[in-house]
Simulated scan of single mutants.
Amino acid sequence: MSKKQIRVQIFADGQISAEVIGVKGKACMDYIELLEQLLDADAIDSTYTSEYYETEQTVLQHRHINTIKNN
C-alpha cells in the first residue's frame, strides 16, 4: 500500500495548487474536498493524474470460526 499525501504549493499571488499522491480513483476528490474546507476555498481547475484512472486494490481477509457445542 502506498503512502497517501497531499502536496500543496502556495504562490505569492495567493493561489494554491494541490496534488493528491498515492490515492487511486475518484477517492482523491475526497482529499481535495477536505482541503477546500480547511482553507475555506474552492477548486477552480482540476487536472487528473494517471492514478485517478486506476482502481484501488483492497485485500479482504475473511476468518471463519466454528463453535461446537458439546451435548
Rank of each mutant, 00 (worst) to 15 (best):
S46G: 05
Y52K: 12
S50K: 15
S2P: 08
Q37H: 06
T55S: 14
E54N: 13
Y31D: 04
K69A: 01
R7Q: 06
E54P: 03
K26A: 12
T49I: 03
H62D: 03
A27M: 09
A43F: 09
S2Y: 01
D45N: 15
V23R: 03
K3D: 00
I44V: 15
I32V: 13
T47E: 15
K69N: 01
L35W: 03
H64A: 02
H64Y: 07
E19N: 04
N70S: 02
K69E: 00
S46Y: 15
N71E: 01
T67N: 07
K69P: 00
K26V: 05
Q37T: 06
I16P: 06
A43R: 15
E33N: 10
K4H: 04
K4P: 02
G25T: 07
T55D: 14
R63S: 05
A18T: 09
T67C: 05
D40T: 06
G22L: 10
C28E: 03
L38N: 10
N70E: 01
D45M: 13
I16L: 13
L39F: 13
E54G: 04
S46D: 08
E51Y: 07
E56L: 13
L35F: 10
D40S: 14
A27V: 03
S2R: 06
G25I: 07
A27Y: 09
S17T: 04
K3V: 04
Y48L: 14
K69V: 00
N70W: 00
I21G: 02
A41R: 14
K4T: 00
